[in-house]
Amino acid sequence: MYNFDVVRPTSVDEALSALSQEDAQALGGGQTLIPTLKQRLAMPTTLVSLSGIDSMKGVSVDGGVITVGGATPHAVVAGEVADAFPALAHLAGNIGDPAVRNRGTIGGSLANNDPSACYPSAALATGATIVTNAREIAADDYFQGMFTTALDEGEIITSVKLPVPEKAAYIKFEQPASRFSLVGIFLAKYADGVRVAVTGASNNGVFRWAEAEAALSADFSVAAVEGLSAPSGDDMISDLHGSGDYRAHLVKALTKKAVAQAS
């Protein structure tokens, strides 16, 4: 790693002030950022740890909306929403491994927007609101391609609001080495329709599978998905672990599993 300082503010204001310095960078749980720093792929002068900001931690359930503090570790989410939103608990409880889940945070995951990360699919499928120090951003506007988001420089995700669906499921098909999603499907059924978010598959990061949403909104059944063609594999990630066509196939196969599980 290159040289840098680590500071640990205890309030959002202090954090923002620290982040306003040149080449300062926010540090969530560090479970992705620290390995990146070890490879010398980033060169911050200061890392601003968000782990000391108590106001950014915790989970609350209120009126059908779950609010998760941006610095809340995955393990806490998995425990806190087990009853209120089991599919989200399942997602949070299967990110990385137990030690990673004790450190990694929802804010860190969404800010990084790794194309194979789990949380972006939940945020997009639930139509979540990404709350920052400055504004509220709808998930549909937030994700802008792999590793790219609507966040401005120095902007911090303070919390995420996720509307609880009537039915939901998250199916993660793991890339066998990294155990990130080779393809992950988050399915959420609301009174006004079904949303299907896909992570791991696309060169453009997490996306909604519109055809499946339409079909499932009309008929929430495995058969409704069966009738669809898999999305095109042309724009999907093709690597050592699977071709674009294989990922495209998985999108459909896993969506069927998700519907079966949520039904």
Binding site: V6, I34, R103
Partner: peptide, 18 residues
Amino acid sequence: TIHVNGKSAKACTMFAAE
């Protein structure tokens, strides 16, 4: 793997300052 405040963590993916 170690325990930090009673919970497991990877000591290689955490700064001493944290």
